[in-house]
């Protein structure tokens, strides 16, 4: 029997007069990698914010999200880690990386500063930061986009959350760095037995490691199921169209050898 971490029932979100999500029923299973696929305006990021309890004040929310396993409302940062597309604004520019990640460990794991720094160094090694000792004392702007995303992963997993929500975590990165970050996330999730909610527009990227896929369109779920089933036998026309629009190295090119 698979245990349910979060159970979403009839969730709806509105901003002023615009509907962002409606009638969402979805379970997040303990230990699974659940991919939320959608294009712009599909409501996928609103879902991520709703699950994390991070919706802005002006959002009107209906329906329920229950956390049977926790027995209380999840605490962002402690029970849920969050990775955004752009890690830059997640960091305070005038504090060192060490200060910021150690603070998470101090606050949520009740460590002293010394222990928290030790633990942070260990985290930086786990996310394979080159020269972790130097990274500890460096400032956010001194890192490349890919390295900043590694640091954001270290901060997101610092409190050992049960659930990691990653909203387009590699969309601002080039494909080579993207592959490295996905490999890293995949390994960390496995090691720690975390649950992953992975939000992306890229169905091929999700196909590489998701257990289940939910496809969103215009604020609704058009289909959800085991990744292999959704990819091989999509039931919704919209999913089939998304799959058909994917371009990879096996897609027939639009031009032939040389210009006419």
């Amino acid at each position: 029997m698979t245990e349910i971490l979060a159970s979403i029932r009839d969730l709806g979100v509105r901003y002023d007069d615009a509907m962002a999500l409606a009638g969402i029923d979805l379970d997040i299973l303990l230990g699974e990698r659940l991919a939320i696929i959608g294009e712009s305006g599909s409501g996928k990021s609103t879902l991520a914010l709703a699950v994390a309890g991070l919706l802005p004040d002006e959002a009107a929310c209906t329906g329920k999200i229950k956390w049977p396993r926790l027995g209380h409302a999840p605490q962002p940062g402690r029970d849920i880690g969050f990775l955004f597309q752009d890690a830059g604004p997640s960091f305070n520019p005038v504090l060192t990386i060490g200060e910021q990640i150690a603070e998470v460990a101090r606050h949520h794991l009740e460590l002293g500063w010394g222990e928290a720094y030790e633990y942070t160094l260990h985290l930086l090694e786990r996310v394979r930061m080159p020269e972790p000792h130097r990274a500890l004392h460096a400032y956010p702007h001194q890192f490349s986009g890919g390295q900043r995303q590694r640091l954001a992963i270290a901060a997101a997993i610092a409190a050992r959350p049960r659930l990691l929500i990653a909203d387009e975590p590699t969309s601002a990165l080039d494909t080579v760095v993207q592959a490295q970050i996905i490999g890293l996330l995949d390994g960390l999730i496995r090691e720690a037995g975390m649950t992953l909610l992975f939000i992306t527009h890229d169905i091929a990227l999700a196909s590489g490691f998701a257990d289940r896929i939910a496809v969103f369109h215009d604020g609704r779920i058009v289909e959800a199921g085991n990744a292999s089933r959704v990819l091989a036998r999509p039931q919704a026309g919209y999913t089939a169209r998304l799959l058909a629009s994917h371009i990879d190295l096996d897609t027939p090119p639009l031009v032939s050898g040389y210009p006419a």
Partner: peptide, 12 residues
Amino acid sequence: KALISAVPRLRL
């Protein structure tokens, strides 16, 4: 080679 292996492929 690195760019080619980094292209996300649909795994059906």
